[in-house]
Write a protein that binds this DNA or RNA. Structure first.
Lengths: 199, 199, 199, 199
DNA sequence: AATGAATGAGTATTCATTCAT
DNA sequence: CATGAATGAATACTCATTCAT
């Protein structure tokens, strides 16, 4: 009656468990870093077992990427904030956007997490392409944001939106990581982004 | 004959060994990251032994910080580039400075290294203050750089030099790490810095 | 309508599945050894699942013995070769027989497989009697072979056929395993058997 | 004062520990087979720790080969038995030799052990050459034995001593393994060897 | 008669650190 | 000052087997 997959009882159970583990990862990784988070830790704080984990993921690396992908899916259409006429200058739009996005960031340690993963996994790992795809998706969204600003005259027009997007991303993450490591003041990020983007 | 320390032969030998190990660390850490680099790795590529290592350093963490400190000492008075009249605009001064500094960077992986250390060591570790001191030294130097630019009208004057310095540092390292992780174009960093600093 | 077993559709299906799994085992075990072959390996290369496997067999050990039994059933009346008047000396009969039997051997790894099973299962396992029964069947057939040779004056008559059969079996398998492990020349086996058997 | 190695205290300690572990392996492996013997088992029945084990051996495979090599070193000049004028026929010489050698065999399970290792390690493993070297040493010694018999007219002269040696080895091990697996009578081995070797 | 998600004890191996000499 | 053998807790991963459906 039920096909090989579809929405059979099995498929439902599978999805539920997998999702629960991934959500758990999203919560646990930022706490101790990639290498610092052990599979043991993870499963102990879940209702599942080691076997369930390895049924759903090939290993720790695979799991981390699944978490990264889930995190990406969680993002809504945040770039629409740039089109909100309520924001009449670059700073207002940037600040509103950062406020909106910060909701997602548990302490802003994800770049450190990815760096940790990158080191642990070997720079040449088979996972690098996936990492770059995820990056590409961020850039696509950031590009929409920049374009929306440009259309309203709130962003430089002398540079391609995609290029500005990449620079804005690097700038933002640099500030995030300096915030985590050295306690850099949160307002600094907004200011740097405004300088970068404003016409 | 010899005091407890002084300039006896022992003291000389001691310093030599310590310096050799630190230099080795400067070379080995970027290759495999903080957690990825083992003490075994280190001593195997030296003429010393585990015993020598633990005589000079309390452990891996202590050693890493010694390497970081040594790396800081290596920097010359790079900020003087900002005063060079040959550079008549912000971009020229920034590009010249980056060129000058890049000589020190083995692949620009040091922020990732520090992030790795930070994760491995626990965010609350006793080493955080040392990390912040080293950061402070960088900021002092960067502030001199920004001040030199401001004096010549090549940098914004509507922000404190120290604040701009912190933002420039975060911006630069963000671009470095995105370069390492995602292959971000090297020219992007100069552009972002110019936008940030220019009057 | 249908009894508990009988020749209902169910019974047919049951036999089919079981036979398919056993045939698969015959093919997969020699590839990776007893411990090296996982149930996962097995079912992945079939159209069945774990559940089907455990419905038909109590476990891996039980399954292995089923495969061994199936393998024994596959043997035809090979010992008749000894009576073929075309072979006029011991060597001719032995070589013809080996040629005939080799068709069954996938690389001659079965003794290693059994040894592997024996080690994994514990020398005292409940499966040892079954192993000995299978051995006994081989000996019965080999005894017929030796008797046929004796009747034609092509084998020693100063020893019981059963005893010679056991020695021949051990000799042959010793050569097989040395062939697999150390690359022992295939012709050696025939020579050793001829020496053992000839009058 | 002490060179890098030589007979310093360190070298002595190292050799002692290594030898103790290898001796232990010689004792433990036959009990549970190669895969069945765990490193944990091993060290628990020693006075050393996991770390000591891995200081001396690269891993389980490396250790097993070290045990095999040690076992080979233990053999004395057993082939001299063949020259003893007290043995006036082939059977007497063979029986005396088997008696002499049996002292070394703890249950005669070493071929099974090697087969187990071979399966576990992958037929293509980097360790196969070492296995073959060990085999080669056995053959050298067996060849001396056969030559001694040939000189005294107690062995076939129509076959090369080296070839006979290889056949005798395979024959003997075949009987050993059938003894272990199926309870084959111990006298059978002597008889088969006599048939193979006698002129 | 079969499905496949989940279990959990078991295993080899790594590595920062210690310590007798 | 330095040696290097030894420690042992920690860790990712495997796999035969179970069981609700």
């Amino acid at each position: 009656m039920t096909g090989k997959d579809g929405d059979s009882k099995f498929a439902t159970r599978r999805k539920t468990t997998r999702a629960a583990l991934v959500r758990l990862g999203l919560e646990r990784f930022p706490a101790k870093g990639y290498s610092g988070t052990t599979i043991e830790d993870l499963i102990r704080s879940s209702d599942y077992t080691r076997g369930a984990f390895y049924f759903h993921f090939r290993g720790k690396e695979d799991f981390f990427l699944a978490v990264l992908e889930y995190r990406a899916e969680l993002r809504d259409e945040w770039w629409l904030v740039a089109s909100d006429p309520a924001h009449t200058d670059t700073r207002a739009a940037v600040v509103a956007t950062l406020t909106h996005l910060n909701a997602l960031e548990d302490g802003g340690a994800w770049l450190m997490l990815i760096a940790d993963f990158f080191q642990a996994t070997g720079r040449d790992s088979a996972y690098v392409p996936t990492l770059r795809t995820l990056y590409g998706n961020w850039i696509v969204e950031l590009t929409r944001f920049v374009e929306a600003l440009q259309e309203r005259g709130l962003a430089r027009a002398d540079a391609a939106a995609g290029q500005l997007a990449a620079q804005a991303f690097a700038t933002a993450e640099g500030h995030t990581i300096h915030h985590a490591l050295y306690g850099l003041d949160a307002a600094a990020m907004a200011d740097s982004l405004v300088q970068l983007l404003k016409p």
